[in-house]
């Protein structure tokens, strides 16, 4: 149809009788009129905040290396430091404020993972040690752990087979 690129109007939605088409048209109409954040500003913020967090991470790694830790060890201490920093900032309610500005810049680094563990731990403490903190601590981070372990296991199986076959 030639009109497909045109905007869907409210009248298109109202006069449409077929339920599925009506829903599609309405969703398109909603999408057209719903305002969105300035995506370029968002991307820039994410770049800045994400970049800065990685620089802090690099700073930690370099610090521990200068103290005499080997490559692996200083990387581990770097992770440990970032996680601790993020959780303290979460407890002080500062991390969500940075996240509001930084978006993916705070979600993507390991600090985002730590925030997703700490936030429910604090929020659900009223529901008890076991069913509150114990269960809910994994509400957001659980899937990351599960699918991280699972996907690396699947890839590991493939690697193992190739190894046995003498390919790698």
């Amino acid at each position: 149809m030639q009109n497909q690129k045109d905007k869907v109007t409210a009248s298109d939605v109202v006069i449409e009788k077929d339920k599925t088409t009506k829903e599609e048209k309405y969703n398109q109409y909603v999408k057209d009129i719903t305002p969105t954040h300035n995506i370029f500003k968002n991307i820039l913020n994410a770049f800045l905040v994400g970049g800065i967090i990685c620089v802090i991470g690099q700073g930690f790694i370099n610090l521990y290396a200068s103290l005499g830790a080997g490559e692996e060890l200083s990387a581990s201490y770097g992770t440990l430091s970032l996680v601790l920093l993020s959780i303290v900032l979460t407890g002080l309610n500062i991390y969500p404020k940075i996240a509001k500005f930084g978006g993916a810049g705070t979600l993507v680094p390991i600090t985002g993972f730590a925030n997703s563990v700490a936030a429910p731990a604090v929020e659900f403490k009223k529901e008890g040690q076991v069913f509150g903190i114990g269960c809910k601590i994994f509400t957001i981070a659980g899937p990351v752990i599960l699918y991280g372990i699972l996907s690396s296991w699947v890839l590991g199986v493939i690697y193992y087979i190739l190894m046995e076959l003498g390919v790698v």
């Binding site: 995506i39 994410a46 994400g50 978006g103 993916a104 810049g105 993972f113 957001i140």
Partner: peptide, 27 residues
């Protein structure tokens, strides 16, 4: 670290804004 880390975050921001994927899924 700044450029590469920032770039990865910027790409994910596009994903977040354009697809409405929830943060949990993105992680």
């Amino acid at each position: 670290a700044f450029l590469i880390g920032g770039a990865i975050c910027a790409v994910v921001q596009i994903l977040l804004d354009k697809t409405k994927l929830l943060p949990g899924r993105v992680m």
